[in-house]
Design a binder for these strands. Structure first.
Lengths: 131, 131
DNA sequence: GTATTAAATAGTAATCATTATCAAAAAGGA
DNA sequence: TCCTTTTTGATAATGATTACTATTTAATAC
């Protein structure tokens, strides 16, 4: 995998953001530093980087995928109203994998805790603002 | 919510299947009993039924959503190769919600354990068959 | 049982996130 | 610098889902 300017800046900005952005949210941010970048380049790199395990692809919630620059194992909540994702602190340390009694023939790669809820903004009433 | 023939049969077939089908997989099954049903009706009802909490919408893995007629809390594995989802038996009983230390302002509705892995079929080599 | 009306359906068009395509540009050696 | 391979930008294509609309049906009142 070659080091291109686009790839470096995409990774840099994703790691800086703590909002688990969608591809197009990240595109808007990256465009400020690389005004000529294509949305396709953002999608392509997010895919490559997550295949390589350098970032994490999150697929809960809405129709859009979200991305996380923090690959350390941790849990997420996603807002059922607006799709926003946040990290949650949990009493981990006890391995989630160890909780499996019968994997039904699957070779398990990893496990995580996942929560659904309503985010602070949506609790304040304005549940219409899809963010 | 009115009881229609289509709605009843969609629910019946979803509850019968243990495969966590996608909307179009369920459409194919339901079509055998209701040959004139529309794919839009299947989508519409799956949405209504999951809003009402009668079924569960699963949004991990691939691009297609999957549905589960079993709403009792339980964990899933999804196959990173083919997207197939299976139930997993875990040492639950200890509430997943109780493991949250800091919910970051979210009002948490529910939590679950989630696993990624490779299903028995994909382990047998033929990882091309997207199922 | 018939009339009423609000909700649901079938068929299909529209949407929208993502992926594919391809010519041109850039990266990383030799 | 030259060569080969990867990546990019621009845009078309795809595919799952949702929206739309005329028609049908369920639930209720009469």
């Amino acid at each position: 995998m070659r080091i291109t300017n686009q790839r470096e800046i995409i990774l840099e900005e994703l790691r800086r953001l703590k909002t688990h952005p969608t591809a197009d949210e990240l595109y808007e941010v990256v465009k400020k530093r690389l005004p000529r970048i294509s949305i396709a380049t953002v999608y392509r790199n997010l895919e490559r980087l997550s295949e390589a395990g350098i970032i994490h692809k999150l697929e809960y919630g809405g129709r859009q995928k979200r991305f996380d620059g923090d690959v350390r194992p941790h849990s997420h909540v996603f807002c059922v109203r607006c799709g926003r994702i946040s990290d949650v602190d949990t009493v981990e340390g006890l391995s989630v994998r160890a909780m499996v009694l019968d994997p039904k023939g699957f070779e398990i790669i990893e496990g995580s805790l996942q929560f659904e809820g309503i985010c602070p903004e949506c609790q304040k009433g304005n549940s219409l603002t899809t963010n």
